[in-house]
Every structure is written in C-alpha cells, then in structure tokens.
Design a protein around this nucleic acid. Structure first.
Lengths: 214, 214
DNA sequence: TAACAGTGGAACGGATCATTCCGGTCTGCT
DNA sequence: AGCAGACCGGAATGATCCGTTCCACTGTTA
C-alpha cells in the first residue's frame, strides 16, 4: 500500500481497483438490459474472468442487492439535489429527468424480488418516498399539476419511461426524455380538462414486486 | 359430427372442442403474464394434460405464433371498428382504449422474437400500420393533437400502458386506462406548450424485437 | 365389441446457470 | 533474489428447468 508508484500504474493492486469499477459498470449495463442475465455475461462484458466477480461478491444475489442499493442511493441523491432548486416545478421536473436519465427505476424496481433486501435498504426506500413526496407536494403547490394527480402517479410515470427501449442506449435516453415530456404535459393542469378515469393509484399498490414468493 | 346430441353434452368430441377454447384462453393469460413461461404452466392453468396441448399445436413456437397472430388480428379489427366512428378524435381515442383493454400490445410486441413469423403475419402487420396511420391522421386533422406528435408515438404510448402491471388484472386494466388518459392529455394540443425534446421516434425504430437473433 | 381419437402425466435429453476449483502469474515484502 | 500469496482466467461440477416424446388408459363411435 505504501509502495504504490505515483502514476496510474499497472500493478496487481491497481488492476484490482480498476476491476472494482469495471465490474460494477458491466453489471449495471448487463442487468439493466436483462435482469435475469447470467453472471457470466457480466464477467464477459467486463472483460474479466468469473473469479474476479466471486472474489468481490458472495454470489449473484449479493451483487444484485448491491446494484439495487446503489440505485436507491442515487435516487435519494437525485431527490436531495433537486430539493435544493428554488423553483418548485423545476425541482420536480429536474428530479424526474435525473431519475430517468440515470435509469434508476430499472435498477431498483426491476431488480426487486431477485434478492432479499437488507434493513438499510428498507430505510433508504422509506426516505426515498419521503423525498419524492416532498418534491411532489412542492409541484402541487406551484399550481402547475393537474388537481387529480397523486404521488403514486410518479411510479406509473417512471415505469412508462423505463419501458421505452431500443437497442442503442443513447437513443433510448432521448426517447425516454420525450416520453417524460409527454407524461409531464399530461400531468399538467389544463383549464378545461376532464378528470382522470378510475380510482387513482394507492399507496401499497406497487410494492408487490418486493414481496418474496408468489 | 352427426351423432352429437342436442345439448351441452359431455362426449369426447365436446370435451375436445371445449379444450380448444380453454387452452387458448389459458395460454393467453399465462403468456401475457410472462412471455417465457413454460408450456407446462399453460396446461396446468387450463386444467388439462400436456398432451392436450401438443395434439393441437406442433410445439411451443407454434402456439406462440398463433397467439400473436390472434392479437394482431384483434388489433386490426379494433382499428377497423374505430374507423367507423364519425368523430375523428373519438375514433382515435376509442381505438387506443380498445387496444389497451384487450392488452393487444403485450400479445404482439412482447411475444415477438419468440417465433419465426409467417408471411401472412407480415401482411397483417403492414395493414395494421396503415390503419393506425389512418386513425392518427384523422386525429391530427381534428386539430386536437399537438403538432409535434407523430404516428410512432403510438408505439411509445402503448408500451407505456402495457408496462403498468399489478397482481390483480382488473385493477391493472383500470390503471392502464388512467395511464392512457394521462398520455392522451400529454399528446393533446395546448396553446402555450413547448415542443417535445429530441428527434421524434422514426419508422423502423421499434421493429428490432421482430428481427431474429441479437 | 373392436378400433381409435383424445388425454394425463411420467420420462428423456438437452440446455442453462450459479458456484467451485485448479493451476498459473505477477507483486510486494523481506 | 526469492517466496508467499493476492488475483485471475476459465474449465469442471452439479443442480435445475423445460420442451418434447411416449405410453397406458378411457370413453366413444361405428
């Protein structure tokens, strides 16, 4: 640890450290594309052997859990950063844009059920909800939201954006932004608009992915 | 065929005829829920043995193909029926509502790639596109569509609705209707609205699911 | 009552994976 | 210089899953 030369160096230690990064990035890319991808696909994408993976993670579930937790943290960070924005509506839309760009929704929701969550994740998820609600409330206060929109509509909205998929990831991001714009326009207050049909989404209605079994 | 008693009867022939229905219905339910479900799941859901399936279909791929083709036909039928509606906007929204309710999108797009399509399906798909375009053009002519919406946005819209999923299928339908309403509001013309970001979706951009391999 | 259409479900064979294991290689310390 | 061991690539392993085939059985039809 003390003998590390000053530069980018190519020692085993350095390669290991770099692999930490490379593997996580590969895992994110692979599991974002297909939540049930084999672990070998991650190794291949990262350009490393399978051992390099198992040296770092106890198993597939462990890796998935970490990935998901990272996504959750990113979500929280995005929300906190957005809350700093003074303009209520801009904070709201900025938050959603950030979440969509980072593809956090796929990372969290779509990976749910593939592992047993930790307590800390539960706490973070709770906090994430609080922050999102705060953002939503501010958006509502700005008067630019249609009156019959509810916080839970955000789940629907994010799901809809995550559903947009084309082979090219760059293009996917563009199309998701477009989708987001349409959805935000749809959630905006418009004078003569008729109300949304059916009972609005309720609180616990999207947690089913997290419940083990069934 | 000539000896069938007049009633609902319980002969082998009758059971077979009933199984035709039951199996297709089960297959639709199962594969709608999970496109890669095992074929045994269909048999179980239908309450029949596996043989009953293989007597009717050459294999899994055959069943999937038929299911998908049925969906495509339903889509076309829905479009034709909608075109009969005199009001342009009502025809447009009615069509989308019908397609969403029937979950045709999952049946067609999500099953794509799991089988090699027939030529007839190609023709039907072409016709489906023509009809959808006609509906869209009429909607545009009604002036209620935002100017920067394009036909391909319909693909995005249907995908977004199909992405809505909760365990209860009845509730799923309700939430999809809500989602559809939001999206239609988002695609509606609004005086001061700013244009949608990024290049609009292009023609061949969603066909990738149909291409075999990769 | 003799053939047989129609069926349930066990059995088979192939494919897919997560995980383990076994050399090898290079490093960092002595 | 030399060695202990961190790290690594990838083959081997064992379990699981699934599509398809096969066979014995049952009620029906002629």
């Amino acid at each position: 640890m003390s003998t590390t030369p000053g530069k980018t160096l190519a020692g085993r230690r350095a390669q290991a450290a770099r692999n930490d990064e490379v593997i996580l990035e590969a895992a994110r890319a692979v599991f974002l594309d297909d939540p049930k991808a084999p672990i070998a696909a991650v190794a291949e994408r990262a350009g490393v052997g399978i051992s390099a993976l198992y040296r770092r993670y106890a198993g597939k579930e462990d890796l998935l859990r970490q990935l998901c937790h990272d996504g959750l943290r990113r979500y929280v960070a995005e929300a906190e950063s957005a809350l700093a924005e003074p303009d209520d509506w801009a904070a709201f839309t900025g938050f959603l844009g950030g979440v969509v760009d980072a593809d956090v929704h796929s990372l969290t929701v779509h990976l749910a059920g593939t592992f047993t969550p930790t307590e800390e994740m539960g706490r973070d998820a709770l906090r994430a909800n609080e922050l999102a609600t705060a953002l939503f409330d501010r958006a509502r206060a700005s008067g630019r939201l249609r009156p019959d929109a509810v916080v839970q509509d955000l789940g629907l909205l994010l799901e809809a954006c995550a559903a947009v998929r084309v082979p090219d990831s760059k293009r996917t991001a563009e199309l998701r932004r477009r989708q987001l714009a349409v959805l935000l326009a749809g959630l905006s207050a418009v004078p003569g608009a008729e109300p949304l049909p059916g009972p609005p989404p309720a609180a616990g209605e999207f947690d089913w992915r997290w419940r083990r079994g069934e």
